[in-house]
Design a protein around this nucleic acid. Structure first.
Length: 263
DNA sequence: ACATTGACCTGAGAGC
DNA sequence: TGCTCTCAGGTCAATG
């Protein structure tokens, strides 16, 4: 689930539920999701503190603890957050639990444990160290930046869009949606894209991600012209009704319309 | 420097 | 019912 739109919604969720609440206890249920910090040190670092603000870059969510530290959350393939009061409402794979003094809890749930939580000192430094590309919803991300990022690339467009070092936040699902809206075949070589195609692609990156957030990243609420609700076996293209095709592109399944997205 | 591959995890669902 | 196999929206290190 967690690509940029999902993580943006997690941010809104944490802002609406967990900011400005005193953390009473931190329970680490599975230490594998911690990176660079032990359960004991994390407890020590957080208990008695308050989450004051949050930020997002690509698929990372940052929650500030104090002036010199942030909690950096990554959700892997199956991570999400859940805020609840009664313990029987706790989700099945809660790996980390923040219990606030108001009696509520915030769980970090991650079934496959591919997500990671760490404590960092500086977001800009973290982004630089990971070599993350620009966030496509950042107002400073403009067409010229995008062109520069694609310059010299020889690979296929889909894996390029999913490369976090080129643009941060797009995964398997939304790359399919963006390419569908931009009418580009997932295997199209980046070097073969015309200027016009690149501009069009740039526009669709923003519009798809923004729309997805506004529809709560829920395929059931997506408008009819989205590919996502039809992105399955025997699905039909919402534009021309051709049967959606499934292929493998760099080891990930890709769905596209063979009529609208010609190579 | 860039592109591609396999490994890392767990569990749901399909097929037998 | 129970077993096995495949697949899943993530990255990362190692290889060509």
């Amino acid at each position: 689930m967690p690509e940029l739109p999902d993580v943006e919604l997690f941010k809104q969720y944490i802002d609406a539920t967990s900011l400005h609440q005193k953390i009473d206890t931190v329970t680490v249920k599975n230490e594998t999701i911690l990176k660079g910090i032990t359960a004991g040190n994390l407890k020590e670092k957080l208990e008695g503190k308050t989450f004051n603000c949050s930020r997002r870059h690509g698929k990372f969510l940052f929650v500030c603890i104090d002036t010199t530290s942030w909690l950096a959350l990554h959700f892997g393939m199956t991570g999400f957050l859940k805020y609840f009061k009664r313990m029987e409402k706790e989700s099945d794979h809660a790996r980390l639990l923040f219990s606030f003094t108001n009696g509520y809890h915030l769980a970090y749930d991650c079934q496959r444990m591919l997500g990671k939580i760490q404590v960092i000192e500086d977001i800009a430094q973290f982004i630089k160290k990971k070599n993350l590309g620009p966030d496509p919803l950042d107002p400073d991300f403009e067409i010229d930046t995008f062109r520069r990022q694609l310059d010299g690339r020889k690979g296929m467009i889909k894996p390029t869009l999913m490369n976090q070092q080129i643009i941060a936040g797009i995964g398997n699902i939304y790359s399919d949606e963006i390419l569908f809206q931009a009418k580009i075949h997932p295997k199209q070589a980046v070097s073969d894209l015309s200027n016009e195609k690149i501009e069009n692609l740039f526009r669709h990156i923003r519009s798809v991600l923004e729309s997805a957030i506004s529809y709560h990243a829920d395929p059931e609420k997506f408008p009819e012209w989205f590919l996502l609700p039809h992105r399955h076996k025997n699905g039909n293209c919402p534009k021309c009704h051709t049967t959606i095709k499934k292929i493998t592109v760099s080891q990930r399944s890709s769905y596209y319309c063979p009529n609208c997205q010609k190579q």
